[in-house]
Design a binder for these strands. Structure first.
Length: 543
RNA sequence: CGGGGUGUAGCGCAGUCUGGCUAGCGCACCUGGUUUGGGACCAGGGGGUCGAAGGUUCGAAUCCUUUCACCCCGACCA
């Protein structure tokens, strides 16, 4: 796949440069354009192929160009590089605060889970067994061929956690004795392993980083409320920080978390109009508490099983961020999650200018660093690497730094700066003090406009359907050669049953969720089975 | 697990069919120079024993055998 993509990318590069050349010649011959060369350069994109040309290849290229992550020697596992990890760290900071504000505490549980623990909840086993990594030995000894061979076989194999319900449940059982111990609301930040065959950086890897919240409650109502609250936290995080609009809703039976009574999720539309499940919150009922004996003495002196929930959000969100905002020039970051907000590029042409220009930049940096954005000082840095002007600029464009500032002798003379916003194509000269004074406003505006742009994409590509025929046409690629960009979100009446799932299969479409609705829908007809129903769902292709 | 494909420099590839100069090319990297407000140019340079093992041969990246790894499609999973 990688080989194919890179081959395709190479071919595209060749054909792109031919196209650019033609464009250049065209422009050369057109007297209307005075700035021929700059127009020619504008036709070039930072990333090739473009989203339109080949979306999956574009995604890979953005990750690579922005230096976010790369494949590792370990099959299916990625290396997250500093710029990518910086985004994740910011996500963690925001979410961690939100969790604590809603009454949760962090703790840490083991990476390994005894096999017997996983076997306790039947549906849970079925859901995860095939993708578990198993540790069977604990010691290495020199082998006959000079290599090392595992020696000590474990009495009971250990599973590398695919999720921690079982081990955390086991501990909960010990910690909970009375209704006074409830609710118990715990979160952990950790890595998990799910042995996937297909891998895409951030979106699907064998090992990934996430947080998993686990709570136990006295009553069903309380646990249900927790499930909804945490979904709201995720939705708020997605919309306010990631600038990514999401649909909140309930999963259908077939998409439900193994072992859960109800799974809620937030679903976002990527720029290829496929859905990405971006965070899930599960109501586990008493399934896990019965399997693991999480019981307590209730107010009446009797014994009750606790009601539990779990909820998680992973580094997949970094992938969501990339696919929601980035363009054909590379990564675009919403300011509230950007590891750096402003890069200052000194423009030095002659050596004797160096001192003056650097002083100007240093003082500008100090001034910017005093500005408070979103409760913290603005993150600003100077790029004084000896790259050439254009190359340096493109470097930061591709990495998605929200604001680029160029400062050279000409700007110093007019006490101004030359500023480019990552979400807008043009750079402009602006008075230095005005730039600093309006910086927060600019970042806020950027955050807002990214959200609006993403919302517009989703609105424009969400349609309601009355018949399976129209529904089916919506999801049939118009262009077989480029099947990636088509379709979107489809809303319709449906009945959650095996017949529906069967009809969706050939279209490669899945029910994303049953969106929450303030009011009950009037009775309608399931477009798949023809049965009467009041349930409306959102359907789409998904990651 | 079934079908197909690929292993040659950090990355991407040519060379293999038809064995033969010192194993090439692009990008990246290093040095020097000229440049520098939108992705520079010129010159020079470093780096590979051709996935691994065995065989055929005067001679193997190239032919034969075995083996390993990876990739794609399907299945499976989300």
């Amino acid at each position: 796949m990688v080989q194919l993509i890179s081959r395709a990318a190479d071919e595209l590069t060749t054909c792109l440069s031919t196209r650019s050349l033609n464009l250049y010649n065209m422009v050369q011959n057109d007297s209307h354009f005075t700035k021929k060369r700059s127009l020619y350069l504008m036709a070039k994109t930072g990333i090739s192929p473009t989203r339109q040309e080949d979306y999956p290849a574009w995604y890979q290229q953005v990750v690579r160009a922005a230096d976010l992550a790369e494949n590792s020697p370990v099959r299916g596992c990625m290396v997250i590089k500093p710029w990518g990890y910086g985004i994740w760290e910011n996500m963690q900071k925001v979410l961690d605060k939100m969790f604590k504000d809603t009454g949760h505490e962090n703790a840490y549980f083991p990476l390994f889970i005894p096999k017997s623990f996983l076997e306790k909840e039947a549906e849970h086993v079925e859901g995860f067994a095939k993708e578990c990594a198993v540790v069977t030995h604990h010691r290495l000894e020199p082998g006959p061929d000079g290599g090392l061979v595992p020696a000590g076989e474990l009495e009971e194999p250990l599973i590398v956690r695919p999720t921690s319900e079982t081990i955390i449940g086991h501990m909960f059982a010990k910690w909970i004795g009375s209704y006074r111990d409830l609710p118990l609301k715990i979160n952990q930040w950790c890595n998990v392993v799910r042995w996937e065959m297909r891998v895409r950086l951030f979106l699907r890897t064998a090992e990934f980083l996430w947080q998993e919240g686990h709570t136990a409650h006295e009553t069903k109502e309380e646990a249900l409320e927790e499930t909804r609250t945490m979904l709201d936290v995720y939705a708020q995080f997605a919309e306010e920080y990631m600038a990514m609009p999401v649909v909140r809703g309930e999963k259908t039976e077939s998409e439900r978390f193994p072992g859960a009574d109800m799974t809620l999720s937030i679903e976002a539309m990527m720029q290829d109009r496929k859905a990405l499940q971006s965070g899930t919150s599960h109501f586990l009922g008493q399934n896990f508490s019965k399997a693991q004996e999480i019981k307590f003495q209730n107010k009446d002196g009797g014994e009750s099983f606790a009601w539990t929930t779990s909820w998680g959000l992973s580094t997949r969100m970094v992938g969501a961020l990339i696919m929601t905002h980035s363009d054909d020039d590379g990564l675009v970051l919403p300011p509230r999650l950007a590891p750096k907000h402003v890069v200052i590029c000194p423009v030095i042409r002659k050596d004797e200018e160096r001192v003056t220009v650097m002083e100007y930049c240093e003082s500008l940096k100090a001034e910017i660093a005093e500005v408070i954005y979103d409760g913290k000082p603005v993150e600003v840095f100077i790029d004084d690497s000896d790259k050439r002007g254009g190359e340096k600029k493109w470097y930061h464009i591709k990495r998605g730094v929200p604001i680029r500032v160029e400062a050279g002798p000409r700007d110093i003379q007019s006490n101004s700066v030359f500023v480019g916003r990552r979400d807008q194509p043009k750079s402009t000269g602006i008075d230095r003090s005005e730039f600093v004074a309006t910086l927060v406003e600019t970042l806020d505006d950027m955050q807002k406009s990214l959200y609006e742009r993403a919302l517009k994409l989703r609105t424009d590509n969400t349609h309601s359907f009355e018949s399976f025929e129209d529904f089916s046409a919506f999801f049939t690629p118009k262009n077989a050669k480029n099947p990636e960009l088509h379709g979107g979100f489809a809303e319709c009446y449906f009945v959650d049953c095996p017949e529906t799932d069967e009809m969706l299969k050939p279209l490669k479409v899945t029910p994303r969720c049953i969106p929450f609705s303030e009011t009950e829908h009037p009775e309608g007809t399931c477009i798949f089975t023809g049965k009467p129903t009041r349930v409306r769902g959102v359907f789409s292709k998904s990651y």
